[in-house]
């Protein structure tokens, strides 16, 4: 009887310790495999972007922005859509290869344009935030600036629209050789745009937008800053992150319009 009891207890102890060790080992193994996967992906990702690291270096590595009320933001010297004297300014930090920016362009921007921009209540300022893991985004931003050089804000926004219509927005959704083709299709000079692009004339301009976005706490795209316009181009902007529904923009814009 004593033997049976001792055997059962011994068996129980060995069973418990066995289960515990197995459980712990499985958890550790899964965690280790996962961390190795993260590390591997990270290394791969860094290797892919090693040639394109000038902009990446200026981008923040941490994605969670500080959101502590309105911040002083600037329209800089970027392209404007709408009445320059509109009482409200909305800055969009855009990445042409971000599918959520494309979604905003496709679904929300037309409504904002119709109700707020075309009626003179709001002006939209387009600034660049090409994320480093979207390979072609930086060049596309530069190309839009090159288009603006040829035909002002009108050409810029036509070019902007055309990129979003043609790209599949997945990092390389639009082949870079198409940038000159778009210019030609819009009645601009493709060869001039290509030489502008090759010279890297607007690289610093796009990098400045990147640096400003980071300073404002905008790390994801699309990000918007909405506030009362000022003659200096600087204003207190409330951040709105993501391709939110039209109702979100309506709430933000109406709140600014109703402020005294």
């Amino acid at each position: 009887m004593a033997t049976k009891k001792s055997l059962t207890i011994q068996d129980l102890f060995s069973k418990i310790s066995k289960v515990n060790i197995t459980q712990i080992l499985v958890v550790l193994l899964i965690a280790a495999a996962f961390l190795l996967g993260v590390l591997f992906t990270r290394v791969q990702y860094l290797e892919e972007n090693v040639s394109n690291n000038s902009a990446a270096a200026q981008q923040p590595s941490q994605q969670v922005p500080e959101q502590t009320g309105p911040k002083e933001v600037s329209v800089d010297d970027d392209a404007i859509l709408g009445d320059k004297n509109a009482p409200i300014t909305m800055i969009e930090f855009v990445d042409y290869e971000c599918p959520f920016c494309k979604r905003f362009f496709d679904e929300t921007l037309p409504q904002i344009k119709k109700e707020y921009i075309d009626t003179g209540k709001v002006k939209l300022v387009m600034r660049d935030l090409p994320l480093d893991f979207h390979q072609n985004a930086h060049k596309e931003s530069q190309a839009a600036e090159c288009a603006r050089e040829q035909g002002g804000n009108t050409a810029y926004f036509k070019y902007h629209d055309e990129i979003f219509k043609r790209t599949t927005s997945n990092g390389t959704g639009l082949a870079l050789d198409q940038l000159a083709v778009i210019a030609n299709d819009l009645g601009l000079s493709g060869s001039i745009l290509q030489s502008c692009l090759d010279s890297g004339k607007y690289k610093a301009e796009v990098d400045k937008d990147l640096a400003d976005a980071s300073a404002y706490g905008a790390t994801g795209t699309p990000s918007f800053f909405i506030g009362k316009s000022s003659s200096s181009g600087k204003f207190q902007g409330t951040i709105l992150v993501g391709a939110q529904p039209f109702e979100s923009f309506k709430a933000a814009l109406d709140a600014e319009l109703n402020k005294k």
């Binding site: 994605q63 599918p99 795209t221």
Partner: peptide
């Protein structure tokens, strides 16, 4: 549902 904003950013 926005580029570069996921919770995974907390892990750097």
């Amino acid at each position: 549902s926005a580029c570069n904003t996921a919770l995974i950013g907390l892990l750097g």
